[in-house]
Structure formats: structure tokens, C-alpha cells
């Protein structure tokens, strides 16, 4: 391989990797905020994203709604459905058993319900293409070629993350969310309504998944199984330590970039194993993940 080809591949791999990585980062963030506050991983995260993608598809394509209506509506639906699932179903499960295993099983159930709904509605059987919300014309960044859509994806993901981190760090609601994650008993003693906080955390996680869905759907073929892409969000979360929010973001970019570099330098058939090689490398060097603190994934 010549040096110039090497540089071209490197630049292209990093550019495409950052775009996909920003979406993985969003998914990882959605997973980790739920894990931090409820100590159970949400295995419905992928299908929450898939469900949101189909809601958007329905509004944009079947109902011909303009994006300015369809996008906010999709986000609201994702918020409401996720918050209600936590408030009506998970709250009952937590109250009657409290064991994380039962919570995980409930999220698996939710995941099947969502997939069943999409299949039952008859829209999930044939693969569909999602209308891109920005132009797919290419532009060059140095030697790397990216589309306008790629830039929109990356920009929107970064903005979403920035807004989320600001909320989490500086608002009263964010502080209450952190308090519930850190010490739920103490949070109750200072008067935090933890049932409400759990619902809001789930709602927020639904919103982030919906944004990820809107961003990624134009780049993949839509099927009722598209939620499996969230595996890469889990991979990103693991790399970041599973309970670290900045870790989730960095993990997302690590996965995105390594996937693309492997695809270019090794083989496109090796792409699927890249994330798992990345996980193994990170876990060998730092078993607690890049940003993991004292408590790593000990529950479940």
C-alpha cells in the first residue's frame, strides 16, 4: 500500500467512522442513562429506536407529513411511550420483585411487543428505505468524501449530546436524575419523586433513541429487525465502562471509527467483528472500561 493510499483510507475511515460513531454514541448514551438510574440494562433500546423509525416513516411517507411536523411528533411519541412503559409496567415489576433480572425480562418483553406491533401493522415485512432528511450530495473534506447528510447526522448528534450533558450537569432535573442514580434512598429522603424521575429518564432515553433513529434510518435498509444495530450501542457503552456517560460517547466514536478502518484496511467482511475486537482490546487493557469507576457491570 502506498503512503498516499494509506492516508486516503485513514482520512476516509475516520470521517465515516465519526459519522456512524456519533449515532452509536447516542444509542450508548440512551442505554447508560437508564442503566445508571435503574441498575438494569434496557434490552428494548434497539426496538425503541426501531419503533421510532417506523413512526417517522409512517408520518413522512404514508401520511406525507412535512419533516417539521413529523420529526417533533416522532420525538414526542417516543418520549410518551417510553415514559409510560416505565411508569405503568416497570414500576409494577420493580415494586413486586425489585430484582434486576425481572426488570431485564420486562424490557425484553417490551422489545417483543414493539417488534410485534410493527410487524402486525404490516409495514415491517418488506425492507423499506427511509427518505433522507438532507441532501446526499458528496463533498470533500481534504481527501475524505462525505455527504451533506453525513454532516447533518454528525452535527445533530453532537448538538443532542451537548444539550443532554448540559441538562444533566446544570439543571435541577438533571441533578435529581444524578441523585437517583447515585443514592436512591437519599434521593427519597430529600424529597425527590423517584417514580417521576424514572419515567423522565426513560422518556429522555426514548427521545435520544428517536433522534438516533431519524439520523441513521436513511443510511440503512429499514426492517423490523433494524433494532439490532443497538448492539453497537451496547458495545460502545461497554467500552466506556457502562456507567459513564462521557465513556458512552467516546465508546461510540471508537466503535464507529474502528468499524470503518477495518472495512477499508482489512476487508468489508471483517466489519462485523471489529466492534468485538475493540471491546476485547479495551477490556484486556482496562477491565473496567475506558471511563469505568469503582462499580463496573456487576449487576446482571
Amino acid at each position: 500500500m502506498t503512503l498516499s493510499l494509506f492516508i486516503l483510507f485513514l482520512e476516509q475511515g475516520v470521517a465515516s467512522g465519526l459519522v456512524m460513531g456519533s449515532v452509536y454514541a447516542l444509542l450508548a448514551l440512551a442505554i447508560v442513562i437508564i442503566f445508571k438510574t435503574s441498575e438494569a440494562p434496557n434490552f428494548a433500546q434497539g426496538d425503541m429506536m426501531m419503533g421510532a423509525a417506523y413512526v417517522a416513516l409512517y408520518l413522512l411517507v404514508f401520511r406525507k407529513a412535512p419533516p417539521i411536523v413529523a420529526i417533533p411528533l416522532t420525538i414526542v411519541v417516543a418520549f410518551v411511550v417510553a415514559a409510560l412503559f416505565r411508569g405503568l409496567v416497570l414500576a409494577k415489576v420493580a415494586k413486586s420483585s425489585g430484582s434486576p433480572v425481572n426488570l431485564v425480562i420486562a424490557t425484553l418483553g417490551f422489545s417483543y411487543v414493539l417488534r410485534g406491533l410493527v410487524r402486525g401493522a404490516g409495514v415491517g415485512d418488506t425492507p423499506r428505505t427511509f427518505p433522507p432528511l438532507a441532501s446526499t450530495d458528496s463533498i470533500m473534506i481534504d481527501q475524505a468524501s462525505v455527504t451533506i447528510l453525513d454532516l447533518v447526522i454528525f452535527g445533530a448528534a453532537i448538538l443532542t449530546m451537548a444539550g443532554f450533558f448540559w441538562m444533566f450537569a446544570y439543571t435541577k432535573l438533571g441533578r435529581a436524575m444524578r441523585a437517583v442514580g447515585m443514592n436512591p434512598k437519599a434521593a427519597q429522603l430529600v424529597g425527590v419523586n423517584i417514580g417521576r424521575i424514572h419515567m423522565l429518564v426513560w422518556g429522555l432515553s426514548g427521545v435520544i433513541s428517536a433522534i438516533a433513529a431519524l439520523l441513521i434510518s436513511p443510511k440503512i435498509l429499514m426492517t423490523a429487525d433494524m433494532g439490532s444495530i443497538v448492539t453497537l450501542g451496547f458495545a460502545a457503552a461497554i467500552i466506556g465502562g457502562f456507567n459513564s456517560l462521557p465513556g458512552a460517547v467516546v465508546g461510540g466514536f471508537v466503535i464507529g471509527v474502528s468499524e470503518n478502518l477495518v472495512g477499508l484496511f482489512i476487508s468489508s467482511r471483517a466489519i462485523v467483528v471489529a466492534p468485538f475486537v475493540a471491546i476485547m482490546l479495551v477490556l484486556i487493557v482496562r477491565p473496567q472500561g475506558l471511563f469505568g469507576g469503582r462499580t463496573s457491570i456487576k449487576k446482571v
Partner: peptide, 30 residues
């Protein structure tokens, strides 16, 4: 808590990764 009853519990139940200031602000959550 809203009605006017606060507890200082046993067993060091602080929000340990938050600053002292944030702990105090959380005390005024309601």
C-alpha cells in the same frame, strides 16, 4: 418532606460523587 419532615439518616447516606454544595442544594429539592 414537602409537608415539613426531614430525616438525617444513619450510615453516611450522602451523594458521594457530588460536591458538598450540590448535596446541600438537593436538600432544598422540594
Amino acid at each position: 418532606v414537602r409537608a415539613g419532615v426531614s430525616q438525617a439518616p444513619e450510615g453516611r447516606e450522602v451523594f458521594k460523587d457530588m460536591s458538598v454544595r450540590e448535596n446541600l442544594d438537593l436538600g432544598a429539592h422540594v
